[in-house]
Design a protein around this nucleic acid. Structure first.
Lengths: 238, 238
DNA sequence: TCGGCGACATGATGTCCGTCATGGGGCCGC
DNA sequence: GCGGCCCCATGACGGACATCATGTCGCCGA
């Protein structure tokens, strides 16, 4: 018996952590583990670059990844993917180059399966096809909401909405308030809401002073949700 | 023989116009025509309202539909769907209320399939599942691009990008230039690019005077694509 | 014929925020 | 220790655009 898990063992345990694969028959899981590749990344590493050819489907096993469109006038973060989620399915499906880059926000473990096998799964396993469709719809809804929120709104409302959404998705209740265990630079916050670093800084440091949203080493703290929501409510009155 | 086509005949010919169904076996098409419902709308009619329960998948047979999110501070047009495209698949799939309203931009004919049968098709017909996934990915890419374009850019560049995209999707070459056969009010243009009616009007009437983009009764004319592209290129220089 | 309505148009004014500039603190390699 | 670099921070300035106000034109119904 080995103390260090073998590659095959790592892949099998990784497969089990992905919800979309849980429903698959054991023999299919077995077969899949022979096809998949496992990989590790550090914060800042690129999983791929915008424009690269896509020939594998990637699934996040551990950590978080940002999808970023790098246009001449600054970056745009389109989405943040977490554990269990498939990324790049759009590009793989359409045999097109990746429309955006993927960058690790923390230590990340990923699983990739070749396009050919991905298509086989789609056709043979309705469960899997449903999982992919579900993820795509989730993505679409999220993008839709982002688009609606981005309109006209002031910078501070957009940042408030961002952190309320993050709290919803990955917040942990603590005695200090809601904790969002995610390391984001001011630049990344700016990229997420579509503004400049300076504007993001102004808002964040004001909120830090006022105790509305506190930046920690590797997380953010929201002492009171209502005070963040109040920012959104203030548009013209008072 | 009847001069007016029967309901069943209309449905069958409608089914044939939808690309996603072309690949289906004849007996499946036959079966489908028993399940589908056909419906007509006039410009301005709602196919559904934001928040309505979704229990059918809708496919556009004829005409165009805008998907619009109605937030307190003005509308946001998320997408314009045309013939052969499925709309509302997101909501139907997730058993969720519609996240946005659908409004006819012109005379529209639609086909609807109950959710139950939609799911059966998905599981039984890999072709169909692929079609849905393809549409979802197309949508996602489009939203993604919109999001990236909405950033910072000036109003006139955004409108220019909008019309260049429309020209790409539905433009017809004529001796006057590219014609976009689509009736859009200034307010709708504003909703598409996320600005106010007044700003949209200022840009459009200036371009009308300069002959860059002419508004006709039920269409728009772009005499020269390059001149529109030049607007996008002008950002700081000159 | 007149009043009302909706779409288009144009000017005046204020303001949010992007841009530029400058500076401070922490961390690294040399 | 010192220079270089990255991230955070703060001020000054100006421009693009939202907002408000007012006006025109065509159309419809009373």
């Amino acid at each position: 018996m080995t103390l260090v898990p073998t590659r095959a063992e790592r892949i099998q345990s990784a497969l089990r952590t992905i919800p979309m694969f849980r429903g698959l028959a054991p023999e299919v899981q077995q077969q899949l583990s022979g096809l998949a590749t496992i990989r590790d990344y550090q914060r800042g590493d690129y999983l791929w670059h915008e424009g690269d050819d896509s020939d594998v489907l990637t699934l996040i096993v551990r950590g978080r990844v940002k999808i970023v469109r790098e246009v001449e006038a600054g970056d745009v973060i389109l989405e943040i993917f977490g554990e269990g989620e498939p990324v790049g399915s759009i590009a793989v499906y359409n045999y097109m180059p990746y429309p955006a880059s993927a960058v690790a926000l923390e230590t990340v473990t990923s699983l990739t399966i070749p396009r050919r096998d991905y298509f086989e799964l789609l056709d043979r396993q309705p469960e899997f096809a449903r999982g992919i469709i579900r993820e795509l719809t989730r993505l679409t809804v999220a993008l839709t909401r982002k688009l609606a929120e981005a309109r006209g709104q002031r910078v501070d409302t957009r940042i408030a909405q961002l952190f309320l959404a993050l709290a919803e998705r990955m917040g942990k209740e603590t005695k200090e308030g809601v904790e969002i265990p995610l390391q984001l630079s001011r630049q990344e916050i700016a990229d997420l809401v579509g503004t400049t670093m300076e504007s993001a800084i102004r808002v964040m440091s004001r909120w830090g002073r006022e105790g509305i949203l506190v930046t920690r080493e590797k997380s953010f703290i929201i002492p009171a949700r209502e005070r963040l929501k109040a920012v959104i409510a203030d548009r013209d009155d008072a």
